[in-house]
């Protein structure tokens, strides 16, 4: 395998006594779409900023193309970033914003104007070049920010939650723009987000971070179906976690005993919400009993919330017709069951 484009080796970053990133090891490959995901304060943005040279690691090394970058100031790197706030220059016109990076590189007036116009065209912003930034819509600004970062033809683009300020329908559209762009250009995208749907929809690989450390790296499907820790399972969402002691293929848990394909000893299993079956009558095989709490309409179906007798919350994804069949009312008890073969055992 070719040498990774970026390598983090034992990178540590502290702000005073607060440790933002702990002994981080991470490879980023050429041409991949990598998402750094985690709750706020997990160190994902600090990691991205260190890559751009906006923060310096306290210890450890960051290399780009094999060259140690620790002491290279941001303006000597080629790591353009799309900011959460977009950080477009309000006193410059659209085309002047896009030209900025070329101007800083000493490229002549004519050439930089031509190259900027090419990118504005590509971003479907032709005719807007002399507008002021505050005369553009949210989606248009987003595309100006992208054009500004890409006009210098970098081999990697960093994105810091760039879609967080957009309306839901625009987010979906911009996701399409971003993935298409990344495939067309064939460059590396490093995308920071706290949104599971954004990361899973676009990224080739997802890095889940928590408390300054990497919790798990993998393809979206791998992480979704096979969370390696309780932290990941809970962060990824719509997962039910069952913990207990396994003996001879059966796990004893506070919610009941269920069959598990795991060796003897303590274990935690994850049952994804879309794999839980809800029924009024006790099904054959293992099941746990829980009281219906409420339902929530999500994009892909309806999530029903239950509470087990010991107070644990369970989620089950059902379709609209299933929900009406159940005629669930708050406080009613149901049986929750699943196929033991499609359960993920953590460890």
């Amino acid at each position: 395998m070719a040498e990774p484009l970026v390598q983090f080796r034992a990178v540590h970053k502290a702000f005073g006594t607060y440790v933002a990133v702990k002994s981080l090891d991470l490879d980023i490959h050429r041409g991949e779409f990598l998402a750094l995901m985690g709750p706020s304060g997990c160190g994902k943005t600090t990691t991205l900023r260190m890559l751009a040279g906006l923060e310096q690691p306290t210890s450890g090394a960051i290399t780009i193309e094999g060259k140690v970058m620790n002491d290279v100031p941001p303006h000597h790197r080629d790591t353009p970033l799309v900011w959460q706030s977009l950080a477009l220059f309000p006193f410059l016109s659209v085309v002047e914003n896009v030209e900025f990076g070329l101007r800083m590189r000493g490229i002549g007036t004519k050439e930089r104007r031509d190259r900027a116009m090419l990118w504005l065209d590509r971003m479907q912003l032709k005719g807007f070049e002399h507008r002021r930034i505050d005369q553009l819509s949210g989606g248009q600004r987003q595309r100006v920010a992208l054009a500004r970062s890409l006009v210098t033809e970098p081999q990697m683009l960093l994105l810091d939650e760039p879609l967080s300020a957009l309306d839901a329908h625009l987010v979906i559209r911009m996701q399409g723009v971003l993935t298409r762009l990344q495939k067309e250009l064939g460059i590396t995208f490093v995308y920071v987000t706290h949104s599971q749907s954004e990361a899973f929809a676009m990224a080739d690989r997802v890095v889940i971070m928590g408390h300054g450390q990497i919790e798990q790296i993998g393809r979206p499907q791998e992480i979704f179906r096979g969370p390696r820790s309780r932290f990941v399972a809970e962060f990824v969402g719509r997962n039910n976690i069952l913990a207990g002691q396994v003996q001879a293929g059966v796990m004893q848990s506070p919610q009941g005993s269920v069959p598990v394909g795991a060796p003897d000893g303590p274990a935690e299993i994850v049952v994804a919400a879309d794999r839980v079956t809800v029924s009024r009558d006790r099904p054959a095989g293992a099941a746990i009993r829980a009281a219906f709490l409420s339902e929530e309409f999500a994009g892909t179906g309806i999530i029903c919330y239950f509470e087990t007798p010991d107070g644990a919350e369970w989620k089950a994804q059902v379709s609209e017709s299933q929900l009406s069949d159940l005629q669930a009312e708050s406080g009613q008890e149901f049986w929750l069951s699943w196929d033991p073969a499609r359960v993920h055992v953590m460890g």
Binding site: A52, G53, L54, P73, P74, H75, T79, P80, L81, W83, Q84, S85, A87, F89, F100, G101, R103, M104, R105, R148, S149, T152
Partner: peptide, 21 residues
């Protein structure tokens, strides 16, 4: 926006250039 200055560095401007532009 406090990122404005960092954005200039990020696009290739040194501290004095970012100040000026």
């Amino acid at each position: 926006d406090p990122s404005l200055e960092s954005a200039a560095w990020n696009l290739g401007a040194g501290p004095w250039t970012a100040m000026r532009y």
